[in-house]
């Protein structure tokens, strides 16, 4: 019993941060599935979602602010795609990727300009940030909510992709981009939809993540973004269940390593794990075979 009380917090932290990585990782993996593009700006969209929340609560009530964060983040994701990626649709893939890196720096520097480079305190969301005690371990309620919410969202997303027309179009586009265009699929709206979904999940992820780790800085999206990207590659980029499972594995391992006392190596471990997986299984855990690598 005492062993559980002592070690449960590590596991809880791992599962919760894993869920938050998962919500970001889905954005990476979906965009990659359809466009074969690694959207480097995704982590920064996540950060901007955090900043919007910081500023939104100063002028409006909390429920409205939450709604605004979702709407504005989705709009930002949509705009980024339209402005930075769509014009390059027929350009070599490398150009689009460089454009993505450009957007990432643009967002970071805009945030630096607006915040003046200082960490902004993320507002406490009532209920979510309440403290709860389970089995003698104290934590915020968000830690418990995150994995549940993540799984619900993933299931809904899975149903959406499997049973709706948009979902079918997405699957078709990810299978064969050109042919699906020839079949009369409006490829631009499918791509926009992908970005909308990815950004929506990033917005939800940011609320959960920043409720736990309450400082929003211009580079706050970089580390979670990178970890989520690793998770997506780990699970097999292009595969949604892969990204989710990869994210949970990375989140849990990271915290267990810290719990064992090897704090210095917790990040090194994450990336070493990635290398091992890629050597053993180059397409990741659930990746398709013969994938076209960038």
């Amino acid at each position: 019993m005492e062993w559980i009380t002592k070690n449960l917090p590590y596991l809880m932290a791992g599962i919760s941060v894993g869920g938050q990585y998962a919500l970001i990782a889905i954005g990476y993996t979906m965009v990659y599935g359809i466009l074969r593009l690694i959207n480097f700006a995704h982590g920064d969209i996540f950060m901007v979602a955090g900043l919007i929340m910081v500023y939104a609560v100063t002028v409006m009530p909390m429920p409205l602010a939450l709604l605004l964060v979702v709407v504005a983040t989705v709009a930002l994701g949509f705009l980024v795609e339209r402005a930075a990626y769509k014009p390059l649709r027929s350009a070599p893939r490398m150009s689009v990727m460089i454009s993505a890196i450009g957007v990432s720096y643009l967002l970071q520097n805009l945030a630096l300009y607006i915040t003046g480079g200082l960490s902004q305190q993320y507002p406490a969301i009532p209920w979510l940030s309440d403290t709860v005690t389970i089995l003698g371990a104290t934590t915020k309620r968000v830690t418990l909510v995150t994995p549940v919410l993540t799984i619900i969202l993933v299931v809904v997303l899975g149903l959406l992709i499997k049973y709706t027309k948009v979902g079918m179009a997405m699957r078709a586009a990810s299978r064969d981009f050109e042919t699906s265009q020839l079949m009369g699929i409006k490829i631009n709206s499918v791509i926009s939809m992908t970005f909308v979904i990815g950004s929506f999940l990033a917005a939800v992820g940011s609320m959960l993540y920043f409720t736990n780790y309450t400082g929003v800085t211009p580079t706050a999206g970089a580390m979670p973004g990178l970890k989520a990207f690793v998770a997506a590659v780990f699970g097999g980029i292009g595969s949604i269940p892969g990204a989710v499972i990869g994210a949970f594995i990375i989140g849990i391992c990271e915290n267990i390593i810290k719990g064992v006392g090897w704090t210095t190596f917790s990040d090194a471990f994450t990336f070493a794990l990635l290398i091992v997986i890629l050597i053993a299984k180059p397409t990741g855990l659930f990746g398709e075979k013969a994938i076209d690598k960038v």
Partner: peptide
């Protein structure tokens, strides 16, 4: 003694360790 890295924002495990 324990250490954390640049860009880390998750300190829950460190706090747990200190308590344990």
């Amino acid at each position: 003694e324990e250490t954390f890295q640049e860009g880390n924002s998750d300190f829950t495990s460190y706090i747990t360790s200190a308590k344990n």
